[in-house]
Amino acid sequence: MAPEYATRGYLTNKADVYSFGVVILEVVSGKKSIKYKPNAESVYLLDLAYDLQEKGNLIALIDPILGYDYSMKEALTILELAMLCTNPSPTVRPTMSEVVRILEGKTQMKAPPLHAPYSADNFVRAKAMADIPLSIQSGGTSKKGHQTPFLL
C-alpha cells in the first residue's frame, strides 16, 4: 500500500506505481513483501532493498535460484526502477506511462534517489540481513533441489 494512503488516507495517481515497484521487488527477489513474522530474522523487503541500495549492492537482492542466468545490466535497471517506483514521496515516483517507456527502452530512467527506510523499528534488522548472503537466508530446498528463498 502506498505510504500516502496508509498514513493519511490520501490516494494519489501514483499509488499504482508504488504497488508496481513492490511487485518488481517481489518477483526479482523471490521474497514476499507483506509476510512478516515478528522475530529476529524477519525484515520488510523494502527495508532490505533500501539498505542494499545504500550500500551499492542492490543486485544482491536477486533470487539466488536464478544463478547467473540473467543480464546483470537489465536486472540492475529493473531493481533501480523498483526503488524509484517505491519512493515514499509520490512526487518523485514516475507515472505508469513513464515506467512503460523506461521498460521499452524509449526513456532513460532518472537516478533513483535514496530514501528513508520504511519501518524504522526493523531497519537495524534489515541492515544486518543485508550483510548475510541470500543463499544463507534461504528457507529450504524445493522439489527440484533448488534453494527456496527466505520469505519476508
Rank of each mutant, 00 (worst) to 15 (best):
T91H: 07
K143A: 12
P113R: 12
E104N: 11
F150T: 09
S97H: 12
N122C: 04
S119Y: 12
K106Q: 15
V92W: 01
T148Y: 15
T148V: 15
M109R: 03
P88L: 02
T95R: 09
Y118T: 00
A116Y: 01
T141L: 10
L84Y: 03
S97I: 12
G105A: 13
M129D: 07
K73E: 05
G139A: 15
P88R: 04
S138D: 13
S119D: 10
P149N: 13
A130K: 03
R125S: 05
L84I: 01
T77C: 08
I78T: 11
S142F: 08
G145K: 02
S97C: 05
L114V: 04
K127F: 00
R101G: 02
T91Q: 07
T95Y: 11
Q147S: 12
F150D: 09
I65E: 10
L76K: 05
Y118P: 02
A128R: 09
R93Y: 00
T148I: 15
D69Y: 07
I136T: 14
K144A: 13
N87S: 07
K143L: 10
L103H: 01
I65A: 12
C85E: 02
D131C: 11
M96N: 01
A82S: 08
S119N: 10
G105W: 05
P149K: 10
T77D: 05
L84D: 06
L66Y: 08
Y118K: 04
L66I: 07
T148M: 15
R125C: 03
P112Q: 03
P94T: 02
T141M: 14
P88A: 09
M83Q: 09
P117Q: 08
A120Q: 07
T141Q: 07
V124G: 02
T95H: 04
T77H: 05
P112D: 09
L81C: 03
K143E: 11
Y118G: 10
